[in-house]
Each structure stands twice: as C-alpha cells, then as structure tokens.
C-alpha cells in the first residue's frame, strides 16, 4: 500500500513502446498462424502487412528524429507549472485515466480537422483489420500541433516523463484491440473498456460507423460525448477509407492526404478563407460543395433509409 504513494523519478522512466517490439512480433506471428490454421478471425494480405510494418518502423524513426519537438514544448510549459504533482504509482494510474480523456479529444480532432487527418489517415488506410494494422502509424505526428493537448497536464505540474510514459502505455493497449480474432468480452468489460469490437466499428467504412468510437482505453468517453456505436452481432465489416487507396506504396500512403491538401490550396481563384478551410475544415469539405464530409455521408445514408 505504501508503495502506491511512494515518489518515483519520472526522468528515469523507460519508454514502454521501446521494448514492445518483440511483443508485437510475437502476437502478429501468432495471429497470422491462428488465422491460417483456423481459416477465420480476419485476414492478412502480404503487401498490406509489409506496408503497415514499414510505416510502423518509419513512425518510430520519426519519433526518434522529431519527438524532441513535442518534448521541448511540453517541457517548456512544465517549467511554467503552477503546482507540483509528485509522480507516484497511484498518480500514474489516475494519469492513465485522465490522459485517455486527452487521447479521446486528440483522436477526435484527428478525424475532424483535415490537417490532423492527413497524418492520421495513414492508420485507417488499410482495408484489413489485424494486429499489423495497429502498427500502421502516422509519420508526422510531431507536426499536427495536437501536442498542445498535453499542456494542461504540464501546467498542473505533471512531469513530462510521466506524460510520455502513460501515453506510451495507452498505445500499447491499443495494439491489442486491432483484431478480428476475438468477438465480444463480458458486458461489464465492453461497457467500460475500448475493446476489439468497439474498435472494429471505428475502422469500419459504413456511414453509421464513421467518426465513432474514438476512445483509447476507456470507451466511456464516447458514451459520454455521444460518439459511441455498438457493433451488431455477426456484423460484416468493411475496413479502410470511404475512397480507398489503389497502392501499397508506403510513401504514397504516408503523404497522399498532404498532397491532396497541397493540390486543393493551389487551385486558382480561391479566397484566403477557402484555402484555410481546405487545411483545417473537416475532411471532405470543398469550396464548391462537390465533395462529401463524413456528416454528409451519414445524412445521405439516413435519407436513403427514411
């Protein structure tokens, strides 16, 4: 009990994701062999898997090269903190929960702001949903500006090392929910935690599933903020993007939405506000209304039902 309140030195924390590699390898191989033997529980595709894993590695390299940007910003805000919150095991548990609230909003912004979506779309670009999809991670995380959502923690005196530690733990948890090999967990578990079932809905391209289930670890945030959608029993899913990519080239996957933004803002005759909207409005926004946002797609689908 005493240990729970003992002070730790967050500067000495290791990054959990830095040692998760072997764990990821083990479970991906296990899932491949499970699906191969049982002929159920999802699907793997060679080039899709290779692309996902290359993007996972590139994302790690990017973190090594550019991760200092976020750390620099958070550390500077921490230097202006208004109080000190000692890092203890119990504080880390509370922080894991509170940080998940931060993750919920960060993830929601990643879907609703095109600049952030251009980075996050990489993760959704696979038409498959398996453990390798979890590693298909964005490359330019450090440039979305979403690091600013960490600032309340730093301002309140949470050490940047502790913030990084729970952020990493959150991502490791999420690796395991990218699978079709398991169905649903007991009701209490599905009510509180983000599970493979909930996350399948998040990756689904059905209109009613778009922009739902943003949670990291705790699905309660979606329940509270009205973005929760339950997976129906035996529901067949289609994963990927509304307009899927026709390439497995990691470079094109990583940059295609940024290229799209560039093309859009380069159009002649646009007002400044329209160029601005092409960068920061929801994905699918267009100055002439020729494209569909996720809300438009949902509305259209609902109209067809009505």
């Amino acid at each position: 009990m005493e240990y729970l309140f003992s002070t730790l030195d967050p500067a000495q924390f290791f990054d959990p994701s830095s040692v998760a590699g072997p764990l990821y390898v083990f479970f991906i191989v296990f899932e491949i062999l499970y699906i191969w033997k049982r002929k159920r529980g999802g699907d793997y595709e060679s080039r899709d898997t290779a692309a996902s894993l290359i993007m996972g590695s590139t994302s790690l390299v990017s973190r090594v090269l550019f991760g200092f940007i976020g750390y620099f910003i958070v550390s500077h805000i921490y230097a202006m903190r208004i109080m000190d919150i000692p890092t203890t095991p119990i504080m880390l548990v509370v922080l894991l929960f509170v940080d998940d609230f931060r993750y919920y909003w960060s993830h929601r912004f990643s879907h609703r702001i095109r600049w952030c979506w251009a980075n996050h779309v990489i993760h959704h670009s696979s038409q498959h949903f398996n453990l390798s999809t979890a590693l298909r991670q964005p490359v330019l995380n450090s440039f979305t500006g979403l690091v600013i959502l960490y600032s309340p923690f730093a301002l309140l005196g949470v050490h940047p090392g502790a913030i990084a530690f729970v952020g990493s733990a959150n991502l490791i948890y999420q690796f395991f929910i990218h699978t079709e090999t398991v169905g649903k967990f007991p009701r209490w578990c599905e009510a509180v935690f983000n599970t493979p079932s909930h996350h399948r809905v998040h990756h689904s391209t059905k209109p009613e599933h778009l922009d739902t289930n943003y949670a990291g670890i705790f699905i309660i945030w979606d329940r509270i903020f009205g973005t929760f959608v339950q997976e129906k029993d035996n529901e067949a899913m289609q994963y990927g993007l509304v307009y899927n990519l026709g390439t497995f080239n990691p470079l094109r996957i990583a940059t295609h939405e940024f290229v799209g933004i560039f093309k859009d803002i380069s159009q002649k005759g646009l007002k400044f506000s329209q160029r601005f909207a092409y960068i920061f409005a929801p994905p699918g926004w267009s100055h002439d209304g020729s494209r569909l946002t996720s809300l438009d797609i949902k509305r259209q689908a609902q109209d067809e039902i009505d």
């Binding site: 191989v29 595709e45 898997t49 894993l53 590695s57």
Partner: peptide, 19 residues
C-alpha cells in the same frame, strides 16, 4: 529491424497463402 521485420512478415504471409 524496421526493414527486416516487414520483409520477413511479407514472406511469411505469402508462405501461408495470404499473398
């Protein structure tokens, strides 16, 4: 490792018929 792992997984998935 970021290059080796995807290559190994590519051939593993091909070997079990996912290619």
């Amino acid at each position: 490792s970021g290059l080796a792992f995807p290559i190994i997984m590519y051939f593993l998935t091909r070997a079990v018929g996912f290619g």
